[in-house]
């Protein structure tokens, strides 16, 4: 006896949801993973160069920062790390706020504070990297105290 012919269910591509909302949360989920992969390299490299190489924590001062930001390589590194970490971190904290707040006003207030902190920190950090002056001089034209020794030469 021939097997009964069964039509394949839903043989045409179909949409699981009829919702017309955006895919924002899916892109946010994907972004956490992509940015996390890049951050793993940037952050571990950052910690290694600042804490393990040379004098480690004891070597950190203005001159150390000036030496690093003299090179576009570290400027780009730090800029990428700043933006990715701040957006990744803020997006993560947004999830945490969504999970635990119960009142709409609490959620609104916390998310507003978070957005302010994100914009403020990213703008400040970006300005610092781009306007950094390794050999700053005072109004009298003399090098400020604490300027690295390579400025005098």
């Amino acid at each position: 006896m021939a097997a009964p012919l069964l039509e394949a269910p839903r043989s045409t591509p179909y949409r699981r949801s009829t919702s017309r909302r955006s895919n924002y949360e899916m892109y946010s989920w994907l972004f956490m993973r992509l940015s996390g992969a890049v951050l793993a390299v940037l952050v571990i490299g950052h910690l290694f160069v600042n804490l393990m190489v040379g004098d480690g924590i004891n070597g950190l001062d203005f001159g150390f920062v000036a030496g690093k930001w003299a090179s576009p390589f570290w400027q780009v590194w730090d800029l990428a790390m700043l933006w990715l970490a701040m957006i990744h971190g803020s997006n993560g904290v947004r999830t945490i706020i969504n999970d635990y707040t119960q009142r709409d006003t609490t959620r609104m207030v916390l998310k507003t504070l978070l957005a302010v902190a994100l914009v403020f920190t990213v703008v400040l950090g970006t300005l610092v990297i781009f306007t950094f002056e390794p050999c700053p001089v005072g109004p009298d034209g003399a090098l400020l105290t604490g300027a690295p020794s390579f400025c005098a030469g």
């Binding site: 001062d61 920062v65 971190g89 920190t121 950090g125 400020l144 604490g146 690295p148």
Partner: peptide, 27 residues
Amino acid sequence: TGLLIFVFLLVHVLDTSLVRVAPEAYN
């Protein structure tokens, strides 16, 4: 750990921004 690192990062960008105030301030 994610929350902790985030809070630290806010402070860390602030203290690093002192390099724009004066070398002495940062040091």
